[in-house]
Design a binder for these strands. Structure first.
Lengths: 215, 215, 215, 215
DNA sequence: TATGAATGAGAGTTCATTCAT
DNA sequence: AATGAATGAACTCTCATTCAT
């Protein structure tokens, strides 16, 4: 990553981006708890932590900006990869593959995001980024599952449990990846697809009943 | 603490237990990062943080003692609850129910443990408690799965992916429970049992070819 | 202190000098062991010890800076005063007078240096400032003595023992001076010059042989 | 050194001796500044620092006892070895040989003593052990020198300077010995004897006017 | 003769942040 | 757009010592 040594006449936007990049790397490597201004500015090649305070109102603003940025990035990625899917089952599979794919492409970005989430999940005071409302976080997946149940493609199960399980089966991958950098994520994704395909698929009885009952 | 290894006196044991309990509560509530000696001693009703330093050689010793204690407690619980299970499938179900059950009985203890793990999972230097070796952590479950495959009770799947998914489907519950204290964990456990029963069960083809090799 | 190596600003330099001066005074008066940040900052008239930590990376950096500064000062002084000497005997005398002279001019500076040396001499781990290599420390004097022996100006003796004795005859003076502030250092120097002149001078036999043997 | 593991029913005297021995070793190795109760009790194999406080009223009492003991030991040694000397010159040589000899026999004891002296020499508050009166410390040697001058065996010189130089030429040896454990102290002693023999011996002129006054 | 438990004071260090330019 | 200087608060940890048995 190119870092200016003199750091002169850099636009504010560029500077913020530079700091955010260093923050992502620092959190991804050391974890949120160890990501101090000092360490971030060192990684960014800045002369003092003062510059971070200058560009961001405070630590929470810095983290908020990071989350917002990575979130937007993920959303963009996911939208692109799941748009084409037709039907609940295909959508679910696309979702799994897309999210694992994002992790494969941006492991540090995702690890940083998770590290922030985990820390805030652990905290009480102040808003956490996944809202403290874990239900909302898995809502998109849950929708697809509910759709599939209505369409008779999926068997009857608690959509919240299933969605949460799917989500958690993926969001630990950034850390798994670090202790095992050669992990084949593409294969891992296919295994998950198969796993949740089996877990969600309609039983013969249901499948049979579905033609009659419709809905 | 004495220089020589001696038997702890009753008083000392009680004091240590008191401090450990306060540490569990503090970490469960505020997260590992916010769990300072000051906050712990305040919660324990101690006059100063000095008393913690007196009974534990340092912060790492305190955390190590906590992990050790909770670990032993979980192990005891799990052994009791899974002993009776016969066969891989039953074992898997018992495992899920037992672990969820432990969380239901000791949510703060489990949340504290998870918080410690997460923080250390995020770190690089130094030993983390789950060893940085995520593979080893899920090994017991993996064994049961492999056994089931050999016995033809389970279909062919990657045991590591399945074991990791099972583990992660449960270990997020302490945090989920906090944002949703009324969550019915017993029902949750049954949903997971069903989910992974579906995910692992042998297909008809495999069930027929029962003599075949696992994977 | 910034992360990048930058030119120190004037203010910072002045502040560092102020802290270093207070450190010298504190160590000279109370000894290395009692020279805490609190006492140093109090003497420097600073509001908090934090300011020391701001200007020096740590206590060892502070001490290192002190040693470096005083060392450079002594070296400058000694070079000036011994440059003009011609011949080993004159050099030896100039050395004694110059070093005692420095102590007369800067007793606290020298006492502080000695106090630091003594403490580090006592330590095992880590580098001590005189290197733990006492032989190297007296090498310059030893050179002059060896030269004098080769030139026949000095008698035969162990140059290491003589050099060490000379060095130690002087480096205790800062402490002697404190218990006896009226000590006449100029006269002391002359006594030492005479003492070591007698101790090193060639015996008549050697001196006689020397005219014959040449060199 | 034999250390009781159980530490039961040891007489107070034996216990004090054990603690003092551990104190000597600790100071000799780590220096006075690092010699804390914790480190001393660890070396003595005691279960807690409490035992030291029990047997000695405080740290200063402990150190005082140590100094007193070692001092008595040295005095005994020196008296034995210098008693036989006849005449100032022989006395001086015997003194040098005896003191160096003590260091050769008890390097740690002597190093510990020096370390205590040095630290207290550096301090201001409180009595130091060599009295803050460095003049008194070298008085025995000085007496012999003055006697020799009166007897015409020694030339005219400042007896305080000479005595101090002699003293310091020897008292650095414990530290020198540590950085160079193979140092031949017997040879070193002979070199010092010769050195100070040359430095003190009467010139021919003085030797002739032997009846004349000293100084 | 000994011990376990507890303590107040102080150590150096790190944190994000603010002041003033 | 940036910087140097400074700061208050909090951190873990160590010190010799005391209380109560």
């Amino acid at each position: 990553m190119g870092v200016n040594e003199r750091a002169e006449s850099v636009t504010s936007t560029a500077r913020r981006a530079q700091i955010l990049a260093a923050t992502v790397e620092t959190i991804a490597e050391l974890g949120y708890g160890q990501a101090t201004f000092a360490r971030i500015s060192e990684r960014a090649g800045l002369s003092s932590t003062r510059l971070i305070s200058y560009h961001f109102a405070g630590k929470s603003e810095l983290i908020a900006a990071l989350v917002e940025e990575v979130y937007a990035d993920i959303t963009r990625h996911m939208t692109e990869r799941t748009r084409a899917a037709t039907g609940p089952r295909e959508t679910l599979h696309a979702y799994i593959r897309a999210l694992v794919g994002y992790i494969a492409e941006h492991p540090t970005r995702m690890r940083a995001l998770m590290s922030v989430f985990l820390d805030h999940r652990a905290e009480d005071g102040g808003r956490s980024y996944n809202g403290g409302d874990e239900r909302a976080a898995v809502d998109p997946v849950r929708q697809a599952l509910a759709d599939g149940q209505r369409a008779g493609e999926f068997r009857v199960f608690d959509t919240f449990v299933m969605a949460t399980t799917i989500q958690r089966s993926i969001d630990g991958l950034p850390f798994l990846l670090r202790s095992d950098p050669d992990l084949d994520l593409a294969a891992y994704a296919e295994e998950l697809v198969e796993l949740f395909d089996q877990a969600t698929r309609a039983t013969r009885a249901e499948a049979g009943a579905e033609t009659g009952a419709g809905r």
